[in-house]
């Protein structure tokens, strides 16, 4: 008797779970990354992007130009050109590669993604459009 009650309950749970999964699958498909561009430039957006990159890459300060993510969804960032007191670059022989970022849309949100680590952070002020 208990078995007779338990089986429908489990089947119901499975049905619920399958339904939940299908919702998540739909959400997941809508979270496919799409390369993006900034649709509207503003100073607030500019500051948000600099701050978000700073957090994403764990770096103290970030400087971007007004054209960042305007014409291309990709952005390369490098160490600031620190120089010695006689004007020579300190890192004149760099073995690093630049930090490479991409502006993407996932769902309804705009993200900045670090192409190396795969980490991304959402932007709340910046308005994006599909590239």
């Amino acid at each position: 008797m208990k078995v007779n009650i338990l089986v429908p309950s489990l089947l119901l749970m499975l049905l619920w779970c399958s339904f939940g999964c299908s919702i998540q699958a739909q959400q997941k498909s809508s979270f496919i990354e799409v390369s993006a561009l900034i649709s509207h430039f503003s100073n607030e957006s500019h500051i948000e992007i600099e701050n978000t990159i700073s957090i994403l890459l764990e770096q103290q300060r970030v400087l971007i130009a007004d054209n960042a993510f305007i014409d291309s969804s990709y952005l390369s960032l490098e160490r600031a050109a620190h120089k010695t007191d006689n004007g020579q670059l300190i890192m004149g022989r760099s073995m690093e590669l630049p930090f490479r970022l991409r502006l993407i849309i996932k769902g309804d949100l705009c993200f900045i993604k670090d192409e190396k680590s795969g980490k991304s952070l959402a932007l709340s002020i910046t308005q994006c459009k599909v590239q």
Partner: peptide
């Protein structure tokens, strides 16, 4: 100071 990143070529 070292942890300042610039868009490539930006200053």
């Amino acid at each position: 100071e070292w942890q300042q990143l610039n868009q490539s070529g930006a200053s």
